[in-house]
């Protein structure tokens, strides 16, 4: 239907991000920031960085989730409005990476909240982050 198509197009064209550090080593955070800097400029794709969960569509999580942060991550996710998507940036956020088995780590964002896209890499490069976001959008477009 035309209206559905329009809505889908708008969702694909305008993903607003919320960045959350759930216990990362800083590597992915730097790269996420670098993706918004003049060289990579994510705003080309209509991406804006928002500061409140209510306005955001995509939750960008970096880092293996530490025990202290798990409850907060969940709360933030619950505050977001549907439809919402979660992108796990970096190997730690995907699976815990090298921190798997450490006592204060929950081994990945998907242990706490559902994840739509995984961007591997340690640290995920800005190019990979852009690619991951684009693939998420592509998947939305097609299905």
């Amino acid at each position: 239907m035309a209206l559905e198509k329009l809505v889908k197009w708008s969702r694909v064209s305008s993903p607003w991000l919320l960045h959350f550090n759930s216990g990362a080593c800083n590597g992915c955070d730097i790269e996420t920031l670098a993706a918004l800097m003049p060289r990579f400029d994510l705003e080309r794709f209509g991406v804006l960085l928002k500061s409140t969960p209510r306005h955001a569509d995509v939750l960008v999580c970096t880092g293996a989730v530490t025990r202290q942060q798990a409850a907060r991550l969940k709360r933030i996710y619950e505050q977001m409005a549907e439809p919402k998507f979660v992108v796990a940036v970096g190997a730690c956020a995907c699976s815990g990476n090298v921190f798997r088995g450490c006592y204060s780590v929950l081994e990945g964002v998907d242990q706490v909240i559902p994840v739509n896209a995984y961007i591997p890499g340690c640290a995920a490069k800005p190019d990979a982050i852009i690619d991951g976001v684009a693939k998420l959008l592509g998947a939305l477009k097609n299905g």
């Binding site: 530490t66 202290q68 088995g101 450490c102 006592y103």
Partner: peptide, 19 residues
């Protein structure tokens, strides 16, 4: 973490993490 049980010290050899 805040919810860490009292009297449990993770770096002692007799403590193992079983999730």
């Amino acid at each position: 973490p805040e919810d860490w049980p009292q009297g449990v010290y993770p770096l002692r050899k007799d403590w193992h993490y079983n999730r």
